[in-house]
Design a protein around this nucleic acid. Sequence first.
DNA 1: GATTAGCACTCATCGTCGTCGAGTGCTAAC
DNA 2: GTTAGCACTCGACGACGATGAGTGCTAATC
Lengths: 347, 347
Amino acid sequence: MKMDERKQQILLAIIKDYVNTAEPVGSRTISRKYKLGVSPATIRNEMSDLEEMGYIEQPHTSAGRIPSNLGYRYYVDCLMQREQLSEEEEGTIRRGYQNKVREVGEILNRTGRMVAQLTHYTALVQMPNFGRSAYRHVQIVLMAPTQAILIVVMDTGAVHHQMMTVSENITQQDLDQISSVLNAKLQGKTMDSIRLNLIKEIYFELSKHRSILDLAIELMQDGITPVKEDKIYLEGVFNILNQPEFHNVERVKVLLSLLEQENLLKDILDYPKDSQGITIKIGKENNRQEIQDCSMVTATYQVGDKILGTIGVLGPTRMDYARVVTVVDCMSRNLSKTLDRILKGQG
Amino acid sequence: MKMDERKQQILLAIIKDYVNTAEPVGSRTISRKYKLGVSPATIRNEMSDLEEMGYIEQPHTSAGRIPSNLGYRYYVDCLMQREQLSEEEEGTIRRGYQNKVREVGEILNRTGRMVAQLTHYTALVQMPNFGRSAYRHVQIVLMAPTQAILIVVMDTGAVHHQMMTVSENITQQDLDQISSVLNAKLQGKTMDSIRLNLIKEIYFELSKHRSILDLAIELMQDGITPVKEDKIYLEGVFNILNQPEFHNVERVKVLLSLLEQENLLKDILDYPKDSQGITIKIGKENNRQEIQDCSMVTATYQVGDKILGTIGVLGPTRMDYARVVTVVDCMSRNLSKTLDRILKGQG
DNA sequence: GATTAGCACTCATCGTCGTCGAGTGCTAAC
DNA sequence: GTTAGCACTCGACGACGATGAGTGCTAATC
């Protein structure tokens, strides 16, 4: 069967109406609301075809039709037209990014809040992953007789710190000496590029501080990177409770227990590595089974050419894709721009 | 009317049964399950008295009784007996704190997770508030031609960092010079104790870097402290959805939209300043109206003599207070001990 | 005087049943 | 190819009665 102009219009009408009302759409409604110049009977015939083609389905006989996953897919691929944000909304966004912020986390947080507010769904914003970043500065500060803090600044602007225990007779002067050797040797190096001979050099210069060096290098190696890198900011979780599909507490529970596990969130934001720009995952296309009755719209953000992370919107499959795509696209550009400004200076 | 032994036993039975079943408790049930040696009729008479005294109430005629807020209050004040955690649970907790961690946030996080897991309610853990802490170390690191990071280590172990913009001709040597002067002058001082003449001294020594100093001091003053100090870790939010009182999505929505606003969370953890130890707030006793059908059990934690923060459990008023009190008490002690170990050394 | 058996009464819950109406598919006419 | 007409389906909704848990009251009992 072929998808002609009229079938497209009818599919479009069904999707629009269903997205608005969350009720199955009947032939009469379409004929009344969306003037196609044909009678309900004709529309019924077309709908029957559309159902056969798999684009719509019937929850039960004597109910109207609702779009299937395939129907939504056809819609986003072929029928959907970008929306435009209102003046007011543009203003909100501009103001959101205007207030000076000096921490990346704060920016991601705000981005998430704005996305949630603009879409009325749930927003996810992934922490930028700078990949293998190099050490810019290392410092060890003595806090208590046996307690010191190791501070590491990466060239991406990330700052990590950890407590470390040192032996009692170590002084701040010792630590300064260690810090400055570490700085001299490690600055500009990535963790993987630090070869054994480099470490040997360091040991050679600081032979009397062997134990503390062991600890510091161990901490820098495995303690520091993984923790914060894949943090994901979540905003507007309760927005999704306004959607009629979540009036059933069981579904809310399934969703919430997924969203509460930070380590699983990255699974659902995961995007096909080749595609940059916007990705839409509808229903069963999602990785995790818990959200296979939801859809995700994600976009990558970048600084320069490098993709740093993803922002996404999670909502029911019955989602206003046009709007969400517009918002996600706009916000990912804004985020890219803002990060660029901050990381490169003049911020 | 007087509260005699038998009335107490009946009230206790009603509370225990209602906490378990979430169903109103009838006289027959009490007589059957909790052998008091009297007939249902007698129990009915006593229940009628208890109702008159305000300790229990009837959802509607021909339903059993449920405890009122006052009833729970009487229970926690006079009837409740501490529970004991099982060997297994004790073990879980011990193991939870055994794994070496070197960041305070990580410890609070784990504490929250354990509390949520042990109680099946929602756990809140407040970031330690060290009060007016003094500067231990200040450092400015140049990142890009006009971009630097200001890092401040407080004597509490808190590390703050912020981006700052600097003029193009500043070098790392300049920044080192500034850092070392700031360090020399500010070390050991709290922000409030930094008087104008001290700042004048700094300006005098570093007159050529006036603009960057302005920025640094401004940042240290208002940018750094408030942000992270009142962070509250939230765990087990979805636990609460298992409670029958939250089968209605509207109530979930009210609660979630409160819990999502980080800045409001501190309101609900707020404890009467004089009391240390355990505080129980039942229903309407809570500050925020959104949780006036819930109860909170909170305990302070401390290092040495100083109260640093609060941990709490949020659940329905129909809560297993005995267990929650035990868990919260135990965990706040554990947390205190662990923080002490970490902050004072030997960690 | 306290306790209890007996009894009438209340009221939420649950399943049944019929009505209503939205929506369909099919057929025949246009 | 389109449409009017019609029989049919089926979920939603409200009415209704049965059920049963639970009560308060009264009078008998200990």
